[in-house]
Write a protein that binds this DNA or RNA. Sequence first.
DNA 1: ACTCTAACTTTGTCGGACAAAGGGACAGAA
DNA 2: TTCTGTCCCTTTGTCCGACAAAGTTAGAGT
Lengths: 255, 255
Amino acid sequence: MPVAPLFRPIDVAPAYQKVADAIEREIVNGRIKPGDPIGTEHDLVRQFGVNRSTIREGIRVLEEGGLIRRDSSRRLHACLPRYSKLASRLSRALVLHEVTFRELYEASMTLEVASIEGAVERASEENVAELADNLARSEAVVGNPAMLAECDAEFHVLVAKASQNRVLQLAREPAAQLFYPTTEMIVTGVAEGGPRLVAAHRHLIDAIRRRDREAGVLWTRRHLQDWRRGFEKIASLDRSVEHMYMEHAQAARRR
Amino acid sequence: MPVAPLFRPIDVAPAYQKVADAIEREIVNGRIKPGDPIGTEHDLVRQFGVNRSTIREGIRVLEEGGLIRRDSSRRLHACLPRYSKLASRLSRALVLHEVTFRELYEASMTLEVASIEGAVERASEENVAELADNLARSEAVVGNPAMLAECDAEFHVLVAKASQNRVLQLAREPAAQLFYPTTEMIVTGVAEGGPRLVAAHRHLIDAIRRRDREAGVLWTRRHLQDWRRGFEKIASLDRSVEHMYMEHAQAARRR
DNA sequence: ACTCTAACTTTGTCGGACAAAGGGACAGAA
DNA sequence: TTCTGTCCCTTTGTCCGACAAAGTTAGAGT
């Protein structure tokens, strides 16, 4: 016979966790707004009535979660979590779960197509200008695989931004971060890779300008299929993402 | 005139960060495998030659990132970051960025359709069984909005799982976590909401069983449109996601 | 072989300490 | 006035040592 639920489970979280939770609550429910100062560690010691070491452990948790940062003078502020930083956590997780390039490819096909559709529909003048600027820089470094791969990654971030849909922007980022290093390898290994990549970007900008959804989708598909063909010259799609790719995601996180 | 780049910026990361980075590197590059013990704090003090407080701050960073956990006896282990925990970080970020329900809806339309397509193509017997089990439980609680909403959230997690694409699984989760609380409100407010929801699930399972892609996509669209219609009876799609929704995501994180 | 207890280890927290770096005020130089 | 160097105070990052509570291990006794 089950016992009558006389007692609720009591909260036995360690103190540093409670400190972190308390500050998190205030930020998430909006009482502390992004940019607001949190106060010094000593202030927090007084407010929470715990030791500074405990406060500091709590602060580390929030810092890692992207909810607070230290400014140039190391003072604490609430802040809006940055997508690229959060996404690199996810990229890391995907690597550890040993996802395959096939999964990456399939998901990206969906996400990038959705991005371009949004961009075609809603891109602003400024979005297009950013994309055009990126294209110009890409054309200038078409012979440099590393820099071209970086431009490519930025290009797709800008397309997602142009979609004006931040959920999509965030959803595509983890997979995109894992693509980036392979793009470099492919452009290095496949002679016509660089020019084809830049040409695809040019068509994509054109499609956005003309609000031509069909063309946007078509060229996004081609662009990704190009990646796939290039990749399959190097390795199998069923290979899992290698640990070494994390270096790039780590670099992105610190930025 | 720009100065010749004689010096590189020097690395002045604090000690606790270096500790965290060093351990993270070993985990991510695979030298420490998930499940492996990390050693006691005292061990780490000896190995890194820094104070225990410093070690502990580094550990908090890794713990929050999901790379290590403490087992029942509080000993440290490397572990695979859990999707739902990471996703709740993203949900939190989306709330803070004040994304609109329109963004959520549009992105989910893409992501859930992609999930069902994958599920129709690749769902295993076991996946279908899990879905059927979920459906049975849903039917049993069709009069209870809170429990039905929970079942609905689980259903879509299971569909994504059935797609066998972990990238997709991860990408859809942050948006899905924000959907969940509204589902409850809608089912509460709209009389025929519950039965329609369950009926849609039944059709989806059926589509997966028959490997009928068209039907799967169709019913996913209808299911989401139902949500939208229900939501618009309550509020505008252009409203931003409210802070209160975070409670659910926070609960998910702790699990 | 099993249980119970005592000793040991580990974690979470505390208090205090100090060097390095930043910010602010202030005086003197250009 | 504007700039610069100096002094002082605050804050952070790190260290040391300590202790209670909870978990682990080993040994005693059955």
